[in-house]
Simulated assay, not measured.
Amino acid sequence: MSIKNITLEKNFLALAPMAGLTHAAFRELVASFGGCDLFFTEMLNVRAIVHQNPEKDPYLICGKNDRPLVAQLVGREPELFAQAVARLEANFSFCGYDINFGCSRGAIQRYGWGVSLMKEPALCAEIVAAVRSATQKPVSAKIRSGFEHNREKLISFVETLIQAGVQLVTLHPRTAEEGFRRPARWEEISWLKENFPSLKILGNGDVFGPQDAQKMLAQTRCHGVMIGRAAPLRPWIFRDTKSYLAKGEIPPGPSPQEIPTKMWELISQYLPEELREKRFELWLFWFLQNFPFGLHYFSEVKKEKTLAAKLEKLRQILSRERLRPYPARPYLLR
């Protein structure tokens, strides 16, 4: 399977774009365990790309092994999307551009970005066309169910995107109001597969382990699976899923106590100093949810005054812990 210059194997796996989490350091951590078939950046604000120096933007830092890498763009003005892509084309080597029509966070919706744009299909088509005008690379879109679970509206919206030039669609089958509160309706991924057999479709939502990925592929017949919240807990989930799909086996997990040190080393290598501890803390909040007392552990680590003391406390705590079998399901969001 290929989308122009991106070659994707059957049942391909993608790392979901997650604000504050899927920066270059985390993508490199995922890559160190074998990686995935498609990486996405965090949401990139097209206004910031246009009005700031992109070469100095920490959100645009790329790793060495996080390839193929797609830039995910957020905003609402078509002209800014075109200008942003032109600047990225001149300064970076992304393999494609993904448009965020799915983020349901309050601040994003207040700006009229993300899932709010699903109320304006004509504007979405203009945005896609603007991106297409600035690049020869693949253009994709990440969407939600919209503001209700309505088959006709969802199919009509995706048809609009296809006509505008989108070549791959990722569907997170929850409405804007549902957030993560209700189970993802995987049958809606099947709706897209049935109606658009030639469209490349990524399923996203409630994949917390290799078994879930296998079930989604079997039930929806989508081309690939995008994994989000489970990835900060288990950055090696893509390795495990590939092994499970190919051989029905899940390799032994790494030692938990080694992972925070490895993550900090990558953060120190790739992120500017003013962001390092904040990004490390955010990732740690998720990673420690692998363990029953993870929230308590997180509080104990935060009490330490220095980074060295925090890392030592983590080594002590995690030396007593073992990873539980999948699913790796977070019990808190942030």
Rank of each mutant, 00 (worst) to 15 (best):
I201W: 00
F208C: 12
R320I: 13
R105Y: 08
R151L: 09
L245P: 05
F238A: 01
C62K: 14
P254N: 08
E77I: 12
K200L: 14
G248R: 04
D57K: 10
I143P: 00
A14G: 04
H23T: 15
K193T: 11
N290F: 03
C95Q: 15
H23C: 10
R221Q: 14
S104Q: 10
E188K: 09
S156G: 14
V131A: 05
M216T: 05
A19C: 09
E120I: 01
R182D: 12
L323W: 14
A230N: 09
F94M: 05
I3K: 11
R239S: 13
F40V: 09
G96E: 05
L318D: 08
F33Q: 04
P325H: 05
G34T: 03
Q214T: 08
M43A: 08
A246W: 07
P173M: 01
K4Q: 14
R324L: 14
K310I: 08
R221W: 10
P58C: 06
E194V: 11
F291W: 05
S255Q: 13
L199I: 12
L80C: 06
I250W: 03
K262S: 10
F26P: 04
N5R: 11
S93N: 14
E194A: 15
I227N: 06
P256A: 01
M226A: 06
G203I: 00
E9R: 10
K242P: 07
E28G: 04
M18K: 09
S156R: 12
L73C: 06
L123G: 03
A84N: 01
N290G: 04
I6D: 01
V115I: 12
F101R: 10
A184G: 06
G248P: 00
F298E: 06
G35E: 01
K200E: 10
N11V: 00
L284C: 03
P183F: 06
A90P: 10
G35F: 00
K200G: 09
Q163V: 12
R315N: 15
C62V: 15
